[in-house]
Structure formats: C-alpha cells, structure tokens
C-alpha cells in the first residue's frame, strides 16, 4: 500500500532541511525517487529527507502548553538583547 511521505529539502550546504512537498509512495526509496523530480524545479537541492507522515507526531491545534499564560518575556533571548542597549 502507498502512503504519504513528507519531503524535506536542504537547499544550501549547512542549512536546515525545510519542508517542501508531500509525495505518495509505496516505500521510502520510491518516495526519494519521486521527491527528486518534484522539487528540482525550485533549484538544485543539496540533500533530501523523506519520512512517512505517520511517523510525524503533531501537537493538537489548541495545545495550551505551547504558549505560556503568565508573562515571562524575560526568559526570551530578545529580553537580554534589549537590556544590553
């Protein structure tokens, strides 16, 4: 059976792999083969990752633990940058 694979592309050496496209494939080798020619119109990739979508764990849309409810901006990096000025 086929399943969706998420495709992540590294466009520059040393750069992060960014999500580019989804391909449907029977296995990961086929997913890579399909991915190569489904992203190359945007440029020349340095590297491509594929993973079955089912292997990706995802937070729920209204996850209350994603953002703090109590103000704690002092814990963000930007706080210290501002304090130094």
């Amino acid at each position: 059976m086929t399943q969706p694979y998420e495709v992540f592309v590294q466009w520059k050496r040393g750069g992060a792999h960014e999500h580019a496209v989804t391909v449907t494939a029977s296995d990961r080798e086929m997913a890579l083969t399909l991915a190569k020619r489904n992203v190359d119109v945007r440029g020349a990739p340095v590297s491509i990752w594929v993973t079955p979508r089912s292997e990706i764990a995802q937070t729920s849309a209204d996850d209350p633990t994603l953002a703090p409810s109590i103000e704690r901006e002092y814990r963000n990096v930007s706080w210290y940058a501002r304090e130094r000025q």
């Binding site: 391909v23 449907t24 494939a25 083969t33 399909l34 020619r37 489904n38 190359d40 119109v41």
Partner: peptide, 12 residues
C-alpha cells in the same frame, strides 16, 4: 498514474 509521477514523467 499519480500527481507526483506525472511531474516526474514531464521532467523526463
């Protein structure tokens, strides 16, 4: 046969 393969065949 699939959208993705359609793109590949066009590319070929």
């Amino acid at each position: 046969p699939t959208m993705e393969e359609d793109n590949v065949l066009s590319s070929l």
